[in-house]
């Protein structure tokens, strides 16, 4: 009986501990996967991002393109392993899904797994880590600092997008493969209606001599040196790591891969439309030329310069045909 009491009281105590503590811990997971029919660059980008997300789980390419709601079940499947025992945990699972279309266009779906919302974005200007020869590097699995542009707080749909970024790119504290030091920043900036994403290494270096010389005047040199190593801040500079890409939000759905559309970007022009416009323009050139030809013929006919059709000129007595026949 004592053991029963102990366990009961233990659980009670634990339950009460959590609210008094007041600090909730975040525990989120990300399911990272792509559709079939993405190019190698898209795949490499996905791998790069997966290497930056230690709390993410990479899955095999997803076969169907129409029944995306099945992704929810997949996410649930992977999420059951995590313990739900601890109360104060905020459990979140997200889905990060690359959809390739026509072997060239890439759409990024980001969703909160059980019940939404879902953001669909078009990805452009993507460059993988490998093709960008940046010298920056960071620990695999170190937690990034997420830097957001203040314009993300302007509109509700941008706030939703920001929140989802925070869930997906923010590595939770104490994630399994995460490292205890912070050495990179991810920047999310809104410009031209698009979201630009960059990844930088934080490079700390000893401050240059010029400002420290003023301290050295007042204090003996060795002491100032020790104080600088302890209390004084090192200078921060950034070195880009990669990858780079630009996202254009298209649609936000209320559910996870389903539900009503609660935001739609009117300014978004699909790449198909762009391509078809270019083709139409090219086709238009021929049409113009053909029209010009017809016009010219009509003009000639009007002047009576054509043998058949058009206006016939009145027979003149001084015509060569009249004179010599």
């Amino acid at each position: 009986m004592a053991s029963v009491y102990k366990t009961l009281s233990g659980t009670n105590g634990r339950k009460e501990d959590a609210p008094t503590d007041g600090i909730k811990r975040i525990k989120q997971r990300v399911l990272i996967l792509s559709s079939r029919g993405i190019t190698s660059r898209h795949r490499h980008l996905l791998n790069d991002l997966a290497s930056l997300l230690p709390h993410g789980r990479k899955d095999a390419k997803f076969d169907t393109k129409s029944k995306l709601y099945q992704l929810n079940e997949l996410a649930e499947l992977y999420n059951t392993n995590s313990s739900v025992r601890e109360e104060p945990l905020i459990q979140k699972s997200s889905i990060f899904y690359f959809e390739g279309r026509k072997g060239k266009d890439l759409y990024l779906w980001m969703s909160k797994a059980p019940n939404g919302p879902t953001v669909k974005m078009h990805m452009q200007n993507l460059h993988t880590m490998e093709e960008l020869h940046f010298t920056g590097n960071c620990l695999k699995g170190s937690r990034p600092i997420l830097s957001f542009d203040a314009s993300f707080d302007k509109e509700p749909y941008l706030r939703v997008i920001k929140e989802i970024f925070l869930h997906i790119f923010g590595v939770p504290k104490g994630a399994r493969k995460s490292k205890p030091f912070i050495d990179h920043v991810m920047g999310f900036t809104l410009a031209d209606g698009k979201i630009w994403i960059r990844n930088y290494q934080i490079n700390e270096s000893e401050p240059s001599k010029v400002p420290s010389s003023t301290d050295a005047d007042s204090e003996p040199k060795p002491k100032s040196k020790s104080s600088s190593s302890q209390g004084k801040e090192t200078e921060i500079s950034l070195v880009e790591i990669g990858p780079r890409f630009v996202l254009t939000p298209i649609v936000i759905q209320e559910g996870s891969f389903g539900g009503p559309i609660i935001y739609e970007n009117k300014e978004f022009v699909s790449p198909n439309q762009v391509r078809s416009d270019i083709r139409q323009k090219k086709a238009g050139r021929y049409g113009q030329r053909a029209e010009q030809g017809i016009e010219r013929l009509a003009k000639k006919g009007e002047l009576g310069l054509r043998t058949s059709g058009g206006r016939t000129m009145p027979v003149d007595e001084l015509d060569t045909a009249m004179l010599f026949a």
């Binding site: 975040i26 830097s147 869930h167 504290k173 935001y263």
Partner: peptide, 25 residues
């Protein structure tokens, strides 16, 4: 949109910075 945001949002104001690591300019 705001309802959806409320549903998923982290209580950032309550959490210590080391939990969420997000900074807005």
């Amino acid at each position: 949109l705001t309802a959806a945001l409320k549903r998923i949002a982290f209580p950032i104001a309550k959490l210590p910075f080391s939990e969420h690591h997000s900074i807005t300019t």
